[in-house]
Design a protein around this nucleic acid. Structure first.
Length: 424
RNA sequence: GGAGAGAUGGCCGAGUUGGUCGAAGGCGCUCGCCUGCUAAGCGAGUGUACGCUCAAAAGGCGUACCGAGGGUUCGAAUCCCUCUCUCUCCGCCA
């Protein structure tokens, strides 16, 4: 959420930045409401001050055992009625303003390249080389089905479309990847491991920006105001909602494995084959809380931490910087890591690393006290996948496939798989 | 699910015949003094948000906030109702 005062004082800048996103937003209406709010607030506060003063007078008179004339009470009663009416009107204006603020996306950082969509995302770097095959590489759904480690039909039978059953070495590989990623980030990159609840309440979903705008993407629990998390970002970022942290403890770095649940509404017909777009998938997420001064450096290191997973697995990838038109709702800057999938002959997103600046912190009220002058400010929040586990498994199957349909297990994973060298 | 207790500032904790209560006291923190250093000790200070004022900062003024929402009242941390959460006991359960 943006600061109402900031919008008020930087209307042109905000307009221009939203424009770069390709978002049209009626700022005039917002500004009119803001103006109205301040006028009503002034009026209400003036009346309340009057009433408070008169009440103090009554208290004083009673203390001195003087009689209070009844007309004083009558007049005050009327003032109180007026205050009540004004308060109600004010509340309704405030809630309309808040509704507005919750629907305005974050402003892109100045370093974000201009563009309209994913075709305009510049490539930032590339690592490794694509594997060379002496045969036609297969997509992972064929490999997984032949090896009987992925069962799409039974997943669909048990639940429905976009659910998959992992079996044998497939289940083990998924579990090994989770452990490998968590170990890397906690031991080598000093993140603290978190295992959060997989369901959260409405306030938490609002804190990170999924609500109110994207409710149709979420699975809602029947009969309760709880939702299944679409990413660990949600519970982990909200760990510190309504808290004031000390600058000395920043940056706080957390790594969390969770399953993620997404309705994928509006993606009908896309990626219907294989593991790419599931309603339930596993992800290891990295989350940071930093000072505003360091957040962009921390974004770079978070991105490097995520890349390290792919390097150790020997998977070819590239990093792209999302342009203004492709940026997510809450993000000020985002890098995507895309892994090479030879079976499909394309790069596919496997991680998304973002700096939200104070956008989420303001929504969730996550602040810190500066060491220097004890002033309280919003923290910056960041997160990135480190990595999407299902898609990593896809990349391993497709990149490490052999002509006979078997899969070489990357060396880094073998200790996690009981020394298994090949899935056959 | 049944019965009871509770929720106050960064933390702990006082505060029910409703009235100068933003709230005692302590811890922590900041500054100063003292001390060879540290600790201890002494003194002073120390909430947040919003609005107005101010060129800006500082400051000043005002309003709100004692789990959340509503009610009673001229006036609510204090009385009433609803909800949420925490704790204790009982039941059920991996």
């Amino acid at each position: 959420m943006l600061d109402a005062k900031f919008i008020r004082e930087n209307v042109d800048l905000v307009k221009q930045k939203l424009d770069a996103r390709g978002v049209t937003f009626d700022l005039e209406q917002f500004l009119a409401l803001e103006k109205q709010r301040r006028e009503m607030l002034k009026e209400t506060e003036k009346l309340r001050a009057e009433r408070n003063q008169a009440s103090d007078n009554i208290a004083r008179m009673k203390k001195e055992k003087k009689d209070v004339p009844p007309e004083v009470f009558a007049a005050l009663k009327e003032t109180s009625q007026r205050i009540k009416v004004l308060e109600e009107d004010l509340k309704s204006v405030e809630s309309r303003i808040n509704d507005c603020l919750l629907m305005i996306p974050n402003l892109p950082h100045e370093s974000v390249p201009a563009g309209h969509g994913s075709d305009d995302n510049p490539e930032t770097r590339r690592w490794g080389t694509p594997p060379v095959f002496s045969f036609q590489p297969k997509p992972h759904w064929e490999l997984g089905t032949q090896l009987q480690i992925l069962d799409f039909d039974r997943g669909a039978k048990i639940t429905g479309a976009r659910f998959t059953l992992y079996r044998g070495a497939g289940a083990l590989l998924e579990r090994s990847l989770i452990n490998f990623m968590l170990d890397l980030h906690t031991n080598q990159h000093s993140y603290t491991e978190i295992l959060p609840p997989f369901m959260v309440n409405r306030q938490t979903m609002t804190g990170t920006g999924q609500l109110p705008k994207f409710e149709e993407d979420l699975f809602k629990i029947e009969g309760m105001d709880y939702f299944l998390i679409p990413t660990a970002e949600v519970p982990v970022t909200n760990i510190h909602q309504n808290e004031i942290l000390d600058e000395a403890e920043l940056p706080l770095c957390y790594a969390a494995y969770t399953p993620c649940f997404r309705k994928e509404a509006g993606s009908y017909g896309q990626d219907t084959r294989g593991l790419i777009r599931q309603h339930q998938f596993n992800k290891v997420e990295l989350v940071k809380f930093t000072t505003p001064e360091t957040s962009y450096d921390e974004l770079e290191s978070l991105l490097r931490n995520a890349e390290e997973v792919l390097k150790r697995l020997g998977l070819h990838y590239r990093v792209v910087t999302l342009c203004t038109g492709d940026l997510g709702f809450s993000s000020a800057k985002t890098y995507d890591i895309e892994v090479w999938l030879p079976g499909q002959g394309l790069f596919r997103e496997i991680s998304s690393c973002s700096n939200f600046e104070d956008f989420q912190a303001r929504r969730a009220s996550i602040r810190y006290r500066k060491s220097e002058n004890k002033k309280i400010e919003f923290v910056h929040t960041l997160n990135g996948s480190g990595l999407a586990v299902g898609r990593t498994l896809v990349a391993i199957l497709e990149n490490y496939q052999q002509e006979d349909g078997t899969i070489i297990v990357p060396e880094a994973l073998r200790p996690y798989m009981g020394g298994l060298e090949k899935i056959r």
